[in-house]
Design a protein around this nucleic acid. Structure first.
Lengths: 227, 227
DNA sequence: CCAGAATGCGAGCGACTACTCGCGTTTGTC
DNA sequence: GACAAACGCGAGTAGTCGCTCGCATTCTGG
């Protein structure tokens, strides 16, 4: 009889999450926190599961009680980060109000993403490295595509005559600038970090402003260089 | 008697390059080429010495006849790349003629670096990864510092009133933009690649142009967007 | 209170790594 | 042609990695 409840359970839910006690949930959170720390300082590939377990103060066997393999740790971490990002900054991904001045729109988006990344440095660490595993890269690509599409929409409202290829290219350039800026911002602290944030915004605004032409807004309000 | 010629040889020249036959030099070039290919597709850390030897069509033992360890392969590769870059594009690092229009100066430098990187993709691969070994990172930092200094000099001639901190920050931003642009350029081919090159130049020119103020040159000659 | 599940441990397994060693082959030199 | 040095090989070494397994402990539903 192949239809015993056990068999059905194993066949139906591909990876039915076994019943967890409160203790287990705490361990999972603890392990993910440790993994974030280790990933952040070593990158994904160089991070060893034994090191993660040690950082969390548990044995390797305990780690594998809650995660089937190393990749699953990164995936779960990525899922939680994505979820929190969508929950906290979902508005930053929404189509922008065409009445908003360009400088304000760019500034707001950059501020939000920089705030999220400085609070969760592991997010950048996992996205940067070329050593991220299969499903992780997929998630990254998905986020990347989402952002490119949003930027394309914004640019399309500014440049109705531009071709789709041009819009896509410009969107990729904007994302590239933002990513390079993130790296610079994260390597500085305090006032210097603030200065870099302003600089990144200026780069984006000056790149996009000539394209906007005669638009409503206050183009002179952009932050001026100290010189 | 510790002063036998053999002892002196071992003590004096730290790693006296043993006498090579023409065959050996060929093998070294062959191994470096194979290493470049493997580093390029896997990054430094993920590249295995056995894979490099296999790619070169030799045994692991042969590889270690010419290189003391894995790091030495990357270092020798880096040294040869640096040497070739300085030899070929040394002029691009020299102080710019203040009479050159900004757009031309930026365009020339970007063109040269992009040409070098597309011809030697392993250069970018080794510089990008966070997994590069000790001396490799030092070389990268040295090149980075050199470039920052050159850009600071250029910016200083444009903005005599700016503070040193501001100049350094702007130089880092310029380098970051260039690096991000390189990544975009390398992931495209043909006409699309050309379009990205133009875009990167525009980003830099529009970032720097407002700072130059009323300068001689032909500011309207910069490439216009297709829109 | 007690059976069974969830949790926890850490020695250990197989696979992979950078790297070595002993021995045979090729090459330059006198 | 002989001798030494350079070249070439590939099985083998020690170490690390992700991951497993058997067994002890703690929790929880009935």
């Amino acid at each position: 009889m192949p239809d015993t409840p056990e068999t059905q359970e194993k066949d139906r839910g591909k990876e039915q999450p076994r019943r967890r006690q409160a203790r287990g949930e705490r361990r999972i959170a603890q392990l993910l926190e440790a993994a974030a720390s280790v990933f952040c300082s070593s990158g994904y590939a160089a991070a060893s599961t034994n090191a993660i377990a040690r950082e969390a103060g548990v044995s390797p066997g305990t780690l594998y009680q809650f995660f089937p393999n190393k990749e699953a740790i990164a995936i779960e971490l990525g899922d939680r980060l994505m979820h929190e990002m969508r929950e906290t900054y979902g508005a930053a991904l929404a189509p922008v109000d065409p009445a908003t001045p360009l400088a304000d729109a760019v500034g707001a988006v950059v501020d939000r993403f920089i705030a999220f990344t400085t609070e969760h440095p592991v997010f950048f660490a996992l996205m940067k490295g070329p050593d991220t595993p299969g499903r992780m890269a997929e998630e990254h690509d998905a986020l990347h595509s989402t952002l490119v599409t949003r930027i394309e929409e914004l640019l399309g409202s500014l440049l109705p005559d531009a071709s789709a290829a041009d819009l896509t290219r410009m969107a990729h350039v904007c994302l590239g600038i933002h990513k390079a800026g993130l790296e610079l911002v994260l390597t500085h602290e305090g006032a210097e970090r603030e200065a870099y944030v302003r600089e990144v915004k200026d780069v984006l605004i000056r790149y996009l402003e000539p394209l906007a032409g005669a638009r409503p807004g206050t183009p002179d309000e952009r932050s001026a260089p100290e010189a």
